[in-house]
């Protein structure tokens, strides 16, 4: 493989990392609060408000039902407004984040819902405020599951970022399509797939180790 090709692979690798990393971070920061709002405002929740709950649920479902490739195109004006351009790696972070946020919100919602109600009740019985219950009970108790869900989101984003190549975002997926698929350069294709496998396995491995460390529900060794 030529030096130019290696450089191209290296650059594409970092583009994928950038897209996945930033949109992952944004989906975490935005998705977790949305999940908390869904849980708290649900029937029997700590701040029951069915109107907010149902509205937010509908918006999240709306975004989740639009195929990513359509979202990518439909969001071009929004992207241009936020980033200044609708093309390139940074521009792709906008649609990626907007797609990943509701995705992670639903995953995190499930994690938070699985927290034993008895624990929330115990905290209420201690006279804890809502905020204390969120900070000391809900989030820490759901943490292993929240991290596992975030790992799934990141892996999904690695895949989705390939599609962002359609708006010139670059990245490994884009490289594989342009060189491997359209120009039949099998070598590039194989290299990209190998890197993606390593990347996805690495993310999953780190996620799993983190979950293991955070989970104190089972006795270790």
């Amino acid at each position: 493989m030529s030096q130019a090709m290696l450089d191209l692979l290296w650059r594409s690798f970092w583009e994928t990392i950038t897209m996945t990393g930033f949109s992952g971070l944004i989906s975490l920061v935005a998705g977790l609060p949305l999940a908390l709002i869904l849980i708290l405002t649900d029937r029997g929740g700590l701040a029951e408000n069915l109107w907010i709950n149902r509205s937010l649920g509908a918006v999240i479902n709306g975004f989740r039902s639009v195929p990513f490739i359509i979202l990518l195109v439909a969001l071009i004006p929004v992207t241009r407004f936020i980033v200044g351009t609708s093309l390139g790696t940074w521009a792709s972070i906008v649609p990626l984040s907007i797609a990943a946020t509701p995705y992670y919100a639903r995953i995190a919602e499930v994690s938070l819902r699985e927290v034993d109600r008895g624990l929330i009740e115990a905290a209420r019985a201690m006279g804890a405020t809502r905020w204390t219950i969120i900070r000391e009970v809900l989030v820490p108790e759901a943490m292993p599951s929240l991290v596992a869900g975030f790992t799934v989101t990141l892996v999904t984003l690695v895949g989705a970022s390939a599609m962002a190549g359609a708006i010139g975002a670059g990245g490994l997926g884009d490289l594989a399509i342009r060189y491997g698929y359209q120009r039949f350069e099998t070598e590039i294709m194989v290299a990209v797939v190998a890197i993606l496998i390593v990347l996805v396995s690495g993310v999953q491995w780190i996620g799993d180790r983190l979950v293991e460390r955070l989970d104190h529900r089972i006795v270790k060794r």
């Binding site: 115990a122 019985a125 006279g127 820490p140 108790e141």
Partner: peptide, 20 residues
């Protein structure tokens, strides 16, 4: 809340926080 802080409660299934 202040009233509850004056009342301790123990439970059948202990309800201890697993992460702490």
């Amino acid at each position: 809340q202040p009233v509850r802080r004056r009342i301790g409660m123990i439970f059948q299934h202990f309800n201890l926080l697993s992460a702490k």
